[in-house]
Design a protein around this nucleic acid. Structure first.
Length: 224
DNA sequence: AAGCTACGCAACCGCTGGTCG
DNA sequence: GCGACCAGCGGTTGCGTAGCT
């Protein structure tokens, strides 16, 4: 049997999008909205795969995209979020209004990685490289992590699936324990919803998406 | 001016998880 | 419960271009 391909590759364009294709896609989504990417190309008269249309729209054509250079504030937020979330680009993008996961991923690989390496910090672990360990303090020391990652006992709805609660000091585990479901508003819960940016010191800033409750992938800590 | 190299970004590919019949 | 389908994600690739020799 096997799974059918996502599109008929023999009859689809590949490579860079033309202005005309962009216009068709924009016009169609303006008229019909996002949805069913698989059938969109045919409906819109595009010789493209649905995945390609989705990517083009999300990464380039969406009207709410913020084009241009990243600010220092955005840089810092990306670094801190990456330290907490790892390569979860879509989650990171969810905290940066107007930025896409692809854009952040590219920016990370081309700019921030180098910036961190220049500071003697391992971009993957966010810990000092061996050669710098003695001279340079860690970017995010455990004392800071303690402030950023709340006490696991205080998280109400994110207990570990296997019931374990040890490994204090393990960034990965603490992170897992600290993530709750998106769209979990304070009004729906007796607990107080606190934006992740609050913990990172970006509350009220441009980079903080606190105000937009519908922000996709909004990460929130809940404290009683 | 021409050729080469490194870099940045857009797009593609393959996989995963969620949903539905 | 199972398989098929689909959207979405992260890693990778390829192309255009700026900078250098």
């Amino acid at each position: 049997m096997g799974r059918s391909p996502c599109c008929e590759k023999a009859h689809t364009n590949k490579g860079a999008w033309t202005k005309e294709e962009d216009q068709r896609l924009i016009a169609y989504i303006k008229a019909h909205g996002e949805g069913c990417w698989r059938s969109l190309p045919k409906a819109a008269g595009l010789l493209r795969c649905g995945k390609s249309c989705r990517l083009r729209w999300i990464n380039y054509l969406r009207p709410d995209l913020k084009r241009g250079n990243f600010t220092e504030e955005e840089d810092d937020l990306i670094i801190k979020l990456h330290g907490l979330l790892g390569n979860k680009w879509s989650l990171i993008a969810g905290r940066l209004p107007g930025r896409t996961d692809n854009e952040i991923k590219n920016y990370w690989n081309t700019h921030i990685k180098r910036k961190l390496l220049g500071r003697g910090i391992d971009p993957q672990t966010h810990r000092p490289l061996a050669a710098f360990t003695a001279a340079v303090p860690s970017f995010l020391p455990m004392s800071d992590l303690a402030a950023v990652v709340p006490d696991t006992a205080a998280t109400s709805d994110t207990s570990h699936s296997d019931g374990s609660s040890s490994a204090a000091g393990s960034l990965d585990l603490n992170l897992e324990l600290s993530i709750s479901l998106p769209y979990y508003s304070a009004a729906e819960s007796p607990t107080l919803a606190i934006c992740l940016c609050h913990h990172l010191g970006f509350q009220g800033s441009e980079a903080c998406g606190c105000q937009t409750q519908q922000q996709r992938h909004a990460l929130r800590f809940h404290t009683s």
